[in-house]
Amino acid sequence: MDTIELGNVTVTRVLEVYGPAGLTPRAFFPESSEDVWTEESAWLRPEFADGEPTVVNAALQTWMLRSGGRTILVDTGGGNHKPRPGTPWDQLETDFLGNLARAGVRPEDVDIVVNTHLHADHVGWNTRLEGGDWVPTFPNADYVIHRNDFEFWNPANGHTSVLGEGPSQVFDDSVAPVHEAGLTRLWEGGSHRIDANLRLELAAGHTPGSSVLTLASGGDRAVFAGDLLHSPVQILEPDANSCFCEDADQARAARRRILGWAADHNGLLIPAHFGGHGAAEVVRDGGGFAIKGWAPFAPYTPGDEGDEGDEGKG
């Protein structure tokens, strides 16, 4: 497992699955320029885009933090046995819980689960299948979710999404069971303090309740940026949204704000889905941004599913 220390916080990368996301670069990022994918292909391939025709690669992974004596998970990936037709993560069978165990964490050890937003690939391991029912995977955890996202994705409220009807199934199997178990903590407003080192901030646009988790401990800074960025191309072209953003203008503004914070505070930018080294340092570059360097995590390549083994298979 990959672990780094940022001040008094340890950050461990726990991989679920890594490979093609099923979309070409221009389909995934319709606002990206025609040339960036070829001009930058020397370092984008194979970690971030590969194949003929080229498709975007994405990692499903969880960031496990130990802070203030508590164990915190940032997003929970796709999950096993989840019906996700039309996606690469339909009916996954991975050893994610085994990878988590090898990082030293059992499900009952988790104190907090942060869902940066409620898309399928961020909430899947919120629950697991047990006796035909979806039950909370982390029975002792508070599942921290912005109320805006909870209300938007709750099918009872009848909201319309750019994703169509599929997300109702996601809410039913991965969010409703933890809420019915009394484990959700729905926060509101612009920010929510987790502890002395960690604070959630609303960064709406990708979804109405999309949030980022900022880390400030000692002299170290980092931001867990969720889906504000799916590809490092969005560092170079921060106004290029993904096709999954609910509010395009808000998403662009949030992305630029978080990139600016990371650049100005020398903070590590840790998006949800970056393969390779998983995170980057960024700097301002004229009116945009550039990559200063990669995080010290060992690089993953497409096809990785973390450590081998059977422990924790669900």
Rank of each mutant, 00 (worst) to 15 (best):
Ile72Met: 05
Gly189Pro: 10
Leu228Pro: 08
His119Cys: 01
Gly7His: 06
Val170Glu: 01
Ala176Met: 13
Glu151Asn: 09
Asp111Ser: 12
Trp37Cys: 07
Asp121Asn: 14
Ser32Tyr: 09
Gly164Cys: 12
Val110Tyr: 04
Ala156Arg: 14
Val56Pro: 00
Thr87Leu: 11
Glu31Cys: 02
Phe48Lys: 05
Ala181Gln: 10
Arg70Thr: 11
Phe297Ile: 05
Arg84Gly: 02
Ala254Arg: 06
Ile4Leu: 12
Glu52Val: 13
Arg128Val: 03
Arg185Ile: 02
Val144Pro: 03
Val283Cys: 09
Glu40Asn: 13
Asn57Trp: 00
Glu93Asp: 14
Pro46Ser: 11
Pro296Thr: 12
Pro177Met: 07
Glu237Arg: 05
Glu281Ser: 14
Pro30His: 02
Thr76Phe: 00
Val212Glu: 07
His117Thr: 14
Asp95Ser: 04
Arg84Pro: 00
Tyr18Gln: 02
Ile194Thr: 10
Val114Pro: 02
Leu6Pro: 05
Glu165Gly: 08
Thr137Ser: 11
Thr127Val: 06
Gly288Thr: 11
Ala254Asp: 06
Gly190Leu: 05
Thr62His: 09
Asn80Ile: 05
His273Cys: 12
Gly189Asn: 12
Asn197Ile: 00
Gln250His: 09
Ile145Cys: 06
Ala176Gly: 10
Ala103Glu: 11
Thr38Phe: 13
Trp153His: 07
His122Tyr: 01
Ser191Leu: 00
Pro20Asp: 08
Thr62Tyr: 07
Ala251Thr: 11
Gly77Glu: 04
Met1Asp: 13
Gly104Asp: 03
Ala262Tyr: 01
Gly218Val: 12
Gly276Trp: 01
Gly287Trp: 03
Trp63Ile: 04
Gly104Ile: 09
Glu39Val: 15
Ala59Phe: 01
Thr12Asn: 06
Pro238Gly: 08
Gly286Asn: 10
Gly293Ile: 13
Thr71His: 01
Asp142Tyr: 00
Val283His: 08
Ile72Asp: 01
Gly124Cys: 04
Thr184Asp: 09
Asp227Lys: 07
Leu129Gln: 11
Ala59Met: 05
Phe48Cys: 02
Gly293Asn: 14
Gly189Arg: 11
Trp43Glu: 13
Leu269Glu: 06
Ser174Phe: 02
Asp133Val: 06
Trp63Arg: 06
Phe29Val: 09
Glu108Trp: 05
Arg193Ile: 06
Thr116Gln: 14
Tyr300Ile: 15
Gln250Leu: 15
Gly79Tyr: 04
Leu213Arg: 04
Ile235Pro: 05
Asp111Met: 09
Val56Arg: 07
Asp50Glu: 13
Arg199Glu: 15
Phe48Met: 13
Val212Gly: 02
Asn157His: 15
Leu183Ala: 13
Ala141Met: 03
Trp153Ser: 00
Leu200Ser: 07
Arg185Pro: 04
Trp63His: 12
Val17Trp: 01
Pro238Asp: 12
Leu15Ala: 02
Glu201Gln: 08
Val135Glu: 09
Thr12Ile: 09
Leu198Gly: 03
